[in-house]
Design a binder for these strands. Structure first.
Length: 479
RNA sequence: GGCGGCAUAGCCAAGAGGCCAAGGCGGCGGUCUGCAAAACCGCUAUUCGCCGGUUCGAGUCCGGCUGCCGCCUCCA
């Protein structure tokens, strides 16, 4: 397996710290608002990476933090007249709702800053003891000049950073690039006791403290958006390696940005789309497909049209999976013939191709291509062989499930293990009404009353419900 | 100003030296159908931003140019 490591700027063979086990940490959200699509990309990407590593037999320990106290939370809370920690709590709940909708599995641990103060303070103390940090009036700063390798992740030297610096220099800092490990709190702000007085952690120290706490130094994968490379991850390396004297992380993975009109989607530009809003217009599986249909390191331009196109593409896989399930119901328990033998051997080929794609730096775009090849092949078999051989289809369904286990595109019914084809926005009485309309139309068709039949079909199409007349009866689906 | 990335068909997007340049959307023709839809069959880039170079051989490596984007400031 090969992964692109931001630290070395090249693909490397993936060798975990411990054979058979993978430890990974992904920077989670600062909980002061609902997540937008740009925030959702790393969620879906690293969820998929985690799923794939699990699929490949690794015992994965996956940690994703919540930054539940920081300046932005305090500011936002003040605006709303809310308590900062209550605000965080609320948005953590909202986060889990969006993540679940996108079929993102919960991490093994979701540590929060406010619940790890002793661990964070210990790390700051250690940095002070080792001479990598200094205190000024209740604030503690990391001294970048004491860490010669500062800049190794983002690929620039302190001099280069200074040359382009647009930061105003804080007079309390010894070096302009020094950054806060601990910030003294102002009156009325949330505060925790520390050897330097009441305050709260700087942004970067929490991830060092919590990842080291749960995974130990030299853990395997640290992930996040490319905008975290500098300063966040650069600072994490400096803090962690200064404190432990050991390499911090083996592989740094960074996803590319979501753009809108080719410009980065960001809160500061205001060109962002909330996951919540998008899910009002598109099924979550389409959003997930859209995110995975491009390699995770490439930029991905977003607009409604592209999502709609993704939806049509995904429909192809959805329809194929459905034809497969129907084939299994109508199929025969017959011995495999030449046609089935050919299919079975191609299934092996698709599985190999899928693994090859994912082994190459988690190339989900190529892996999805293999999924389409598989669907095409199975559709062809179904088209040619009626009734199909059940054993062959069962093998095909296993492969659909394998691919889906990794990509997480289709919801699966926990009870039956079957794919769930209709999005949960439809059901109950509405579905019964639909069945009634379909029955009426069937009667019209038997009378050869094509006007009535076509009117019902066209009307339903307007509502986004497609009817398909097949020899086995009428099939409907929501588009 | 410093550092970095990307440019592949009408659109989206894989592909990091060598069988015919994946896949999807769209389009065209056909099979099926009452007509459709879906599915199936066939077609849809003599060519990978431009110019040089390395090589028996280059979207794929090197240099230059052009264009777009990002980081250097909170941001996934």
């Amino acid at each position: 397996m090969e992964v692109y490591n931001t630290l070395t700027k090249k693909k490397e063979t993936f060798r975990p710290r411990e054979p058979g086990k993978v430890s990974m940490y992904v920077c989670g959200p600062t909980t002061y608002n609902l997540i937008h699509l740009g925030n959702a990309r790393p969620l879906v990407v690293f969820d998929t990476i985690r799923r794939y590593l699990t699929y490949r037999g690794y015992a994965v320990t996956f940690v994703q933090n919540f930054t539940d106290i920081d300046d932005k939370i305090i500011t936002r809370a003040a605006e709303e007249g809310a308590e900062p920690l209550a605000l965080s709590e609320r948005y953590i709940k909202e986060y889990f709702q969006d993540a679940a909708a996108l079929n993102v599995l919960p991490a093994d641990v979701h540590p929060r800053v406010t619940e790890h103060m002793p661990v964070i303070i210990d790390l700051v103390v250690r940095l002070l003891e080792r001479g990598f940090a200094y205190e000024v009036e209740g604030n503690v700063y990391f001294a970048v000049t004491r860490f010669p390798e500062y800049g190794k992740l983002s690929g620039r030297s302190l001099d280069e950073m200074l040359a382009g610096a647009r930061v105003e220099v804080d007079p309390r800092k010894r070096h302009p690039m020094d950054f806060a490990l601990w910030k003294r709190s102002r009156p009325g702000e949330p505060a925790w006791d520390s050897p330097w007085g009441p305050g709260r952690p700087g942004w970067h120290i929490e991830c060092s403290a919590m990842s080291l706490h749960y995974l130990g130094p030299g853990f395997d994968i640290h992930g996040g958006g490319a905008d975290l490379i500098f300063p966040h991850h650069e600072n994490e390396i400096a803090q962690s390696e200064a404190a432990t004297g050991q390499p911090f992380v083996r592989y740094w993975l960074h996803n590319g940005f979501i753009t809108v009109n080719r410009e980065k989607m960001s809160k500061s530009l205001g060109n962002f789309f909330l996951v919540r809003e998008i899910l009002e217009k598109f099924p979550p599986s389409v959003v997930r497909f859209f995110l995975l249909n491009t390699h995770y390191r490439s930029p991905l331009d977003f607009d409604d049209t592209r999502l709609a196109v993704a939806g049509r593409a995904l429909d192809r896989l959805r329809v194929s999976a459905r034809l497969l399930e129907e084939g299994l119901e109508n199929g025969r328990e017959r011995a495999a013939g030449a046609e089935e033998e050919a299919l079975l051997s191609e299934l092996e080929r698709f599985k190999d191709a899928f693994i090859r794609a994912m082994d190459d730096d988690f190339n989900t775009a190529q892996a999805i291509g293999v999924f389409f090849d598989l669907a095409h092949r199975v559709n062809g078999y179904l088209h040619r062989s009626q009734p199909p051989v059940r054993a062959a289809l069962a093998a095909a369904r296993e492969l659909y499930r394998d691919f889906n286990r990794v990509l997480g595109l289709f919801p699966v019914d926990e009870q039956t293990g079957r794919f769930v084809f209709e999005e949960p926005c439809f059901g109950g009485k509405a579905e019964q009404l639909l069945e009634l309309l379909i029955a009426v139309r069937q009667e019209a068709r038997q009378r050869k009353d094509w006007t009535t039949a076509d009117r019902i079909r066209a009307g339903l199409r307007e509502l986004g419900i497609v009817l398909e007349d097949t020899p086995e009866g009428v099939r409907w689906r929501v588009v």
